[in-house]
Design a protein around this nucleic acid. Structure first.
Length: 286
DNA sequence: ATGGTCGCAGAGCGA
């Protein structure tokens, strides 16, 4: 099963990139963020084309800002908008989370609040939002993947220059502690532990993408049973190139088949016949 | 090239 997550920065503007990308990459489950559409607006634009490509879709939007969606061609059960205990911002619930069960995995498409400035009310909102999400995830099923724009770079290797971010959001200890507190596996980092160029977001301004001056803030955080199935995990940089790109690239994760509980106990292989003494490798006799 | 990137909205703000 292939899972992808992509902050598209307006699904309407990204439609000419998104639909061909789906056809090319063939993800089974797609988490979208920043659709910037109402549910009706998303349905009008995407229901037809997505059905054509074989996807069911669930969208949670408000129009203008935020907006998240889940696309699936392997089932989309128990769709949940927001999450239990999700905090409001200045009295309003924002469209930043949608969840569903797809092929046995609880998938959450998340757009974590930006935080704007350290010591702003938006930063406090971000930390509370992550705390509440951790509580909700802890109450949920054991096979889970949090996918989306976390607006936190987990480590210094996840920004192009740690010095450039001193005093900024996305890299502070409280934000990073919130990510760790999920107790989940950052599957792209786990797959590429030494890489320092795994960025998923580059500012549109000043040729940042061209110079590869980015951040890795789009993550797939998986519970151990799901992380143990990861066969591939990568950032699809090609989707950030060319005309009318989002400022984020998609993250793609391939999972092997879930272990099947119905096949019974594994039968041990027959033991090797005794040969008397140590087994020897074939010797060349030239 | 006297701007500087987008998107939403239809001015300035959010990212």
């Amino acid at each position: 099963m292939r899972i992808a997550t992509w902050n598209v920065n307006s699904a309407k503007q990204r439609m000419p990139r998104l639909l061909p990308w789906l056809a090319e990459r063939q993800p089974d489950v797609v988490c979208l963020q920043e659709t910037k559409l109402t549910d009706a607006g998303f349905a009008d634009l995407f229901d037809g084309p997505l059905a054509e490509l074989g996807y069911e879709a669930a969208h949670h939007g408000q129009g203008g800002f935020n907006g998240v969606a889940l696309l699936s061609r392997v089932g989309l059960a128990d769709v949940e908008r927001n999450f239990a205990g999700q905090p409001d911002y200045r009295g309003a619930t924002e469209a930043r989370a949608i969840s569903a069960t797809c092929a046995g995995v609880r998938i959450r498409s998340l757009y974590v609040p930006n935080g704007r400035e350290v010591s702003s009310d938006h930063y406090d909102y971000k930390l509370h939002w992550l705390d509440a999400l951790a509580d909700a995830v802890a109450q949920g099923p054991s096979d889970v993947a949090l996918c989306g724009d976390m607006n936190v770079a987990p480590a210094d290797a996840d920004v192009f220059d740690p010095g450039a971010y001193i005093g900024h959001t996305h890299v502070t200890a409280p934000e990073r502690e919130r990510l760790s507190a999920f107790g989940l596996v950052d599957v792209v980092r786990a797959r590429w532990p030494e890489h320092d160029r795994l960025f998923s977001y580059w500012d549109y301004r000043a040729g940042m993408f061209h110079q590869d001056l980015g951040m890795r803030i789009d993550l797939v955080l998986a519970s151990r049973p799901v992380a143990d199935r990861v066969a591939a995990a990568w950032v699809d940089r090609a989707a950030r190139k060319g005309k009318l790109p989002s400022d984020h690239a998609p993250v793609i994760v391939d999972l092997d088949e879930a272990p099947d509980g119905d096949i019974g106990p594994v039968v041990p292989p027959p033991s090797n016949p005794k040969r008397g003494g140590r087994t020897r490798l074939p010797q060349s006799r030239d």
